[in-house]
C-alpha cells in the first residue's frame, strides 16, 4: 500500500488539502491496482481539486450522482472518478439536500459535458456555468421530474397482490392534500 501512495505523493498531498480531515483513504484491488478516495467538504472545493488533476494530466472517467436515501439520509452526493497513469482518483462531493448545486468542470475536462447534462436531467442536480446545458436523453418538451410520475410496469402489474401500488396512491394523496 505504501508503494502505491509513494508513487503519487505530490498529487495525493494536494488533494488531501482540499478534502475534509480524516476522510482520505486508499484501497487496492486483488491485482494491485490503486484507488484513492477523497471527500470534499463543500462543492466549492471541486474546481480547485479538479484543476489539480487537470494540471497533472488526469482524464475524467465517469461521474456518479446518487441519493443517500438508501442509507437513510436525505443528502445527495456526486463521485467524480479520474484516472492518471493507471491509478483511479475518486472525489466525492456532498451536496446540499435542499438545493443541490455543483460547479461545472466542463471547462477543465471537455468530456464532463455529457456527464453533467445527465446529472441535471436524471438526478435534479443544478450544474452552474455549464457551457451547453441542454437535455441529454430526454426531449426538451418533457416537464421536469416527469419520470417520477410514471408507475413502473412491474408495480402496476403486481398492483392486485402487493401493497406497492396502493402505498404510492396514498403517498400521492398526501402530497396533493
Amino acid at each position: 500500500m505504501q508503494d502505491v501512495i509513494r508513487n503519487n505523493a505530490h498529487i495525493i498531498k494536494n488533494l488531501t488539502l482540499c478534502s475534509e480531515t480524516g476522510t482520505v483513504h486508499h484501497t487496492t484491488d486483488s491485482f494491485g491496482n490503486a484507488f484513492h478516495w477523497f471527500r470534499l467538504g463543500t462543492p466549492r472545493h471541486l474546481t480547485r481539486a479538479a484543476g489539480l488533476l487537470r494540471e497533472a494530466g488526469a482524464r475524467l472517467c465517469m461521474t456518479t450522482a446518487y441519493n443517500r436515501r438508501h442509507l437513510s439520509e436525505p443528502m445527495q452526493e456526486i463521485c467524480y472518478h479520474f484516472e492518471l497513469a493507471g491509478v483511479v482518483y475518486n472525489l466525492t462531493v456532498t451536496l446540499n439536500g435542499e438545493w443541490p448545486v455543483v460547479p461545472s468542470i466542463t471547462h477543465l475536462f471537455a468530456n464532463a459535458d455529457w456527464h453533467e447534462r445527465e446529472m441535471m436531467e436524471l438526478y435534479g442536480v443544478n450544474v452552474t456555468d455549464h457551457p451547453n446545458p441542454r437535455r441529454l436523453f430526454l426531449d426538451e418538451e418533457f416537464d421536469e421530474g416527469i419520470l417520477n410520475q410514471a408507475v413502473p410496469l412491474s408495480i402496476m402489474m403486481n398492483g392486485a397482490c402487493t401493497t406497492d401500488l396502493w402505498e404510492r396512491v396514498l403517498k400521492n394523496r398526501e402530497k396533493l392534500s
Binding site: 472517467c61 465517469m62 456518479t64 446518487y66 443517500r68 438508501h70 442509507l71 455529457w114 456527464h115
Partner: peptide, 11 residues
C-alpha cells in the same frame, strides 16, 4: 445502494 457504469461509446 448505487450501481453506475460508463460505457466506451459514451466518451
Amino acid at each position: 445502494a448505487r450501481l453506475k457504469w460508463r460505457v466506451p461509446s459514451y466518451m
